[in-house]
Design a protein around this nucleic acid. Structure first.
Lengths: 128, 128
DNA sequence: TAATAATCAATAATAATTATTATTTTTAGG
DNA sequence: CCTAAAAATAATAATTATTATTGATTATTA
């Protein structure tokens, strides 16, 4: 098992993600942390976001604009992406319509489409 | 309304997507078409994939590896992405377990997680 | 068949992400 | 407390996916 040593920078990244809910990109996190730690480098942000994702402390969201966004993992929830402004909103479990398995909530705008992707290990890779 | 003129290249791209079900990337489509039309350029492939997506004839899939994949749009269906080999499989409607709204089918491997994203127009953008 | 409007190939540019490397931090053991 | 091995960092270079530009070409339609 790979050992993970403490780092001030990684703590700052996790802390940043914990306290904001706008699903920032790596670059947005980098700029926020630079305000208090001007020496941090973008590579460090990317590496630690990858590490935190591997460790399951953080979740990566791919919304379709080619930029990965990050979310502090607390519980299973979904997302609503605006096709106009590209903002990403949380869809809390209680906002879901359990019968139709879709959103129906005054806080969420008009849903035009949705994408459901399952991740796992395919049959061929399991046999290897 | 923007007029869309016929183009041999666009037809080849659509034709390529219609006849394969491995959800190719722009680059994969480019290399396939180059076998019969060595003069086609990658920019043309990107531009036409974007156009076809706008026209709703093709669907873009973002699976989380930073590369966009494309799918010939026939009906609403979902996807299964292997975390090991990154292959993308179709999850047909009949493969879904309607009660738990998850996959349960011998053709699909082991599901570890899933991502559900809704797309639309947020409240702020609707009011503009 | 000629005007015109979209398309094309080729290329340059951009933007997100990853890799490299010399230096600095962290942490476990004496 | 000190020290050395292991891992992390900053700075930078490199890579990769995608978009923009441009001048020439091709398809539609009057």
């Amino acid at each position: 098992m790979k050992e993970v040593k403490y780092s001030r920078q990684r703590e700052a990244i996790l802390n940043c993600l914990m306290h904001r809910h706008d699903h920032p990109t790596a670059d947005a996190i980098y700029h926020t942390i630079r305000l208090t730690d001007p020496k941090i480098s973008l590579g460090t942000v990317y590496r630690n976001l990858g590490l935190l994702t591997e460790l399951g402390q953080v979740r990566k969201i791919s919304c379709g604009d080619g930029i990965e966004r990050y979310d502090y993992k607390t519980y299973q929830h979904y997302h609503f992406v605006c096709n106009c402004c590209n903002a990403v909103f949380d869809v809390e479990p209680e906002m879901m319509d359990p019968v139709h398995n879709s959103v129906n909530h005054p806080d969420i705008g008009e849903v035009e489409s949705h994408s459901l992707i399952f991740y796992g290990k395919c049959k061929a890779c399991k046999e290897k």
